[in-house]
Simulated scan of single mutants.
Amino acid sequence: MGRQVLTWIGAQAAASGRRYVRLATARDDRPLRAYYERAGYRHVGDPPHAKWPTSLYERAIESG
């Protein structure tokens, strides 16, 4: 079901003319981070001053 949600989010972003889907997740949740990476998301950083330990991810929207 998670992949279906990510696919739907990507379709919504594409329909809105977005170039990327971005998300934030818990920095210490290694299984979830690995899941997003397998789904094509790229780790773009860990903001040092976030209220909670956070990792940021993004995935380019495929055109066409």
Rank of each mutant, 00 (worst) to 15 (best):
D28Y: 12
E58L: 06
E62R: 14
G2S: 09
A15L: 09
R59C: 05
Y35S: 02
L23N: 06
G40S: 08
G40P: 04
V21L: 03
L32Y: 13
A50T: 11
W52M: 01
K51P: 05
I9G: 02
H43G: 00
W8S: 01
I9T: 14
Y20R: 12
D46W: 13
L32G: 10
Y35F: 15
W8D: 02
G40T: 13
T7H: 13
D29M: 10
D28L: 09
A34L: 09
E37K: 07
P53I: 10
A50G: 03
V44R: 14
H49S: 02
S55G: 00
T7D: 11
M1E: 03
P53W: 14
A24G: 03
V44A: 01
L56W: 15
R42S: 08
Q4R: 13
I61G: 08
D28C: 00
D28Q: 12
H43L: 15
P53C: 07
R33H: 07
W52G: 00
I61Q: 08
R19L: 11
Y35G: 01
G17I: 09
I9A: 15
A11C: 05
R19M: 06
A50Y: 15
L32S: 09
T7R: 14
P47T: 06
A13W: 05
H43N: 09
P47S: 04
E62N: 05
Y41A: 01
R38I: 02
D46R: 15
S55M: 12
R30N: 02
G2A: 13
G45R: 14
E37Q: 15
I61E: 02
H49A: 05
Q12D: 06
Q12S: 07
H49P: 00
A39W: 10
T25E: 04
T25A: 11
G10P: 01
E62S: 11
H49Q: 06
Q4D: 04
I9P: 01
I9E: 03
A14N: 03
R18S: 13
D28P: 02
G17F: 13
L23Q: 06
E62V: 12
P31I: 00
L56R: 15
G45C: 05
P31N: 10
P53L: 10
A34W: 02
R22N: 07
Y35K: 04
R33I: 08
V44F: 10
W52F: 14
S55H: 07
G45Y: 14
Q12F: 05
E37G: 02
V21A: 00
Y36W: 09
G40L: 07
Y35W: 13
E37V: 15
A15V: 02
M1A: 12
A13E: 01
R30E: 10
R22D: 06
Q4I: 00
R42F: 09
G10D: 05
V5G: 02
L32V: 05
L32W: 11
K51S: 07
R42C: 07
R33P: 01
P47I: 08
P47L: 08
A34M: 06
H43F: 15
S63M: 07
G45W: 14
